[in-house]
Write a protein that binds this DNA or RNA. Structure first.
Lengths: 263, 263
DNA sequence: CGCTCGGTTGACCTAACTCAACTTGTGTGG
DNA sequence: CCACACAAGTTGAGTTAGGTCAACCGAGCG
């Protein structure tokens, strides 16, 4: 289960571990594990301290809170995201349950090793700060999204995000079952269905998991009504590294990167 | 405007700066400023990069988002909080506008100095990570609070939180005007008023800004319906049911151990 | 086949918002 | 000193976004 040389090379490229010194990299990977999960697996359990940090290498992870059934999906993570890094840094109970989708690949690093290494390796500690800052921004955006938009606007916005993420193709594929998409957007499956229906006049065609946006501009008009939510100045081109990091984080949380934002 | 010796001693006690080495402490405080703001002042502006980190020493700060009028209050910060540390770490546009209340006292540290110092001072960088982790947890809790509780539950819970924070005294003082409290709780002022009214049967008496909780236990029953939301320490009022409830909940849900098998 | 499961559609319900009137406390100018 | 305006808060009546419940449909599958 331990990391072989090929794994080490792969893993070294992660933003977090890339920053680490040779020493702390060795320390961190000594007891790290890289494994493919076969079935739906909980990486953290709400309310329980997780002994290690998970990093999603492949597949996807859903952050959920609350009892199953009444629970809410707070985010869908994409590969290269850390999973509840904050809880590991604080060695505190996780605030959400993190479900890894079947066939995901996850790197697991002992939390104690991480905290220890971070205390002596400034580059690592700083990389952690940057990662945490990205996570923080993501959740703040999610909160704003929830508080100042209605369900239709959230849906429209989500579709535009996917649109952009899938390189502006007019056909896009929903990355999850509609049921969990609804939960992510803070609405019921029934309402999501109705939502799609009422977006039809705006050029949205739905066929199973694939959605066609005939007139993205019209959609943008709806979402842009209060897009002060994502409308912070475009990312500074002079800082490509930061921009990348931010973009990754955005993707991870399923909220839009305002490349331009003007329809 | 620069810091005098007394200021330096005070400021050295901050969690962030306490961790810093003598070197980076000097570096950080060289261009730092400690000032009392006289009127309502924006420490950060939504969408604009803030050149420096603000730390609230005295008074209070409200984090708002959205156009004035239609905006939402996302948080009320207490003294010793950092203000949008994440944005400063990333040197990215702030996600919210941070209003300092009149007569607040704010320490201002150049962001560039902070980032520079953090890159070489592991203790400082780690302290920043811990602070960010705390902020992250706070926002996640806010999001959960918003998503899985109704307005009444949020209000009840808020009152209990204040209750606890003010050392369990039966009389507590609201830290802000009801108007902004309503916005913080994600409801309208009218509805907040009605909310207080409907909590009267649970022993809540309101007289202007002071609230008396006659029977905190009853309130807790209402809020506890899903109190896994804020897992920070059990409520002072020892609720023997709590642990049981939680256990039952997990059991009932058949919450799998990490090596879960989905049926 | 017939079963379940994900999704859709329709009828209904309710929590929360809106709007408007009214109260009360707090200045402020004559 | 009063008159007045003004803001914060409360109360009431009507509206609506979104949730709930139940029936229904089509696809995968034992």
């Amino acid at each position: 289960m331990s990391l072989d040389t090929a794994d080490l090379i792969r893993v070294r490229k992660l933003p977090l571990l890339d920053a680490a010194s040779a020493d702390s990299f060795a320390q961190l990977t000594r007891d790290a594990v890289l494994q493919s999960v076969s079935r739906r697996t909980a990486l953290t359990l709400e309310g329980e301290v997780s002994p290690s940090l998970s990093i999603l290498m492949e597949g996807s992870v859903a952050l959920e809170s609350g009892r199953d059934g009444q629970g809410a999906t707070l985010a869908l993570l994409e590969p290269l995201s850390t999973v509840m890094l904050a809880s590991v840094v604080l060695d505190a109970p996780a605030l959400v349950t993190a479900w890894a989708a079947p066939r995901s690949e996850v790197l697991t690093i002992p939390g104690a090793a991480l905290r220890l290494a971070a205390r002596t390796d400034p580059a690592l500690a700083f990389a952690i700060s940057e990662e945490l800052s990205g996570c923080y921004s993501g959740v703040v955006r999610a909160l704003k999204n929830q508080r100042l938009r209605g369900t239709l606007e959230r849906l429209a916005n989500y579709l535009l995000t996917q649109h952009r993420r899938q390189n502006g193709a007019t056909r896009l594929t929903l990355p999850s079952r509609k049921r969990v998409l609804a939960s992510l957007l803070g609405m019921t499956p029934e309402n999501l269905s109705r939502g799609f229906a009422s977006l039809a006049p705006l050029g949205v065609e739905v066929d199973g998991p694939i959605v066609t946006l005939r007139r993205p501009g019209d959609l943008a008009l709806l979402a842009a009504a209060d897009s002060s939510i994502d409308n912070h100045a475009p990312f500074d081109a002079a800082r490509p590294g930061q921009a990348d990091r931010e973009r990754r984080r955005f993707k991870a949380l399923d909220f839009p990167v305002p490349e331009d934002a003007r329809p």
